[in-house]
């Protein structure tokens, strides 16, 4: 059995109070293991993004326990959560690259925040990662000169260059056309497998589901079915 990356027990979360109160997650139990690639599907508003932000240590649940990378989130302050996030990679719907930096500098930027950052070694790691996403030799270019698919591949490189234990992707293909989107997810799956990290991807994109190892379906804030992919 591979290493546990995240464990959620009875997690509930909601927004607002009084008559405007809206419960978004209820009684979520979930175990994530290293090497898993999980697709999180479900209708709009079912709570996928909310669950991802909990897994990303970007918010703390109102109810239940979240244990991330061996740490109980309940005991962590802002600095502790930030430290936790340094071991997590994010890929967003839009690439959200830093416009004023080059492609290579964007990937390196993910490393400067890490403890023990070392410029020369970080540059080598960033170059290798760009090579791995098929953008070797384009490091010096401004990000604006890349196509949408290429930009999203830089975002994947940025998430994975820090060798995270967990990668969270929210609709990473939604801004791309079908073929390009699938290629990005395939790349993400490949790299995650070779690094042995867990990925959770919120998605509406049916075309990518064959690339994952597990599918979770959310409905009304609850994980309705858990099916193991072939």
């Amino acid at each position: 059995m591979s290493r546990a990356v995240a464990a959620l027990r009875g997690v509930g979360h909601g927004f607002g109070s009084g008559p405007r109160r809206r419960t978004v997650l209820r009684g979520i139990d979930l175990d994530l293991r290293a090497g898993e690639f999980v697709a999180l599907t479900g209708p709009s508003g079912s709570g996928k993004t909310t669950l991802l932000t909990l897994l990303g240590a970007l918010r703390v649940p109102e109810a239940g326990r979240v244990c991330l990378l061996g740490q109980d989130m309940a005991g962590l302050d802002a600095a502790g959560l930030a430290a936790l996030r340094r071991r997590i990679g994010f890929v967003f719907q839009r690439h959200h690259l830093l416009r004023s930096l080059s492609v290579l500098e964007n990937v390196e930027a993910a490393l400067h925040a890490l403890p023990g950052a070392e410029p020369r070694r970080d540059r080598a790691a960033a170059l290798a990662m760009l090579e791995a996403v098929g953008l070797g030799g384009r490091g010096a270019e401004p990000t604006a000169r890349l196509s949408g698919g290429e930009q999203q591949r830089v975002a994947v490189a940025r998430a994975l260059v820090r060798r995270p234990a967990l990668v969270l992707a929210d609709e990473p293909t939604a801004s791309l056309d079908g073929g390009t989107g699938r290629a990005v997810v395939a790349l993400l799956a490949d790299l995650a497998r070779s690094q042995g990290c867990a990925v959770v991807m919120g998605t509406h994109d049916e075309r990518c589901l064959d690339l994952v190892t597990r599918r979770l379906h959310m409905e009304d804030g609850m994980l309705r079915q858990t099916e193991q992919a072939a």
């Binding site: 930030a82 996030r85 994010f90 959200h96 930027a109 993910a110 925040a113 890490l114």
Partner: peptide, 16 residues
């Protein structure tokens, strides 16, 4: 602002 938000998500502190 969105770029700064990305940095916060990556674990950079507000002090950065």
């Amino acid at each position: 602002l969105p770029e700064y938000a990305v940095l916060l998500a990556q674990g950079y502190r507000p002090a950065f």
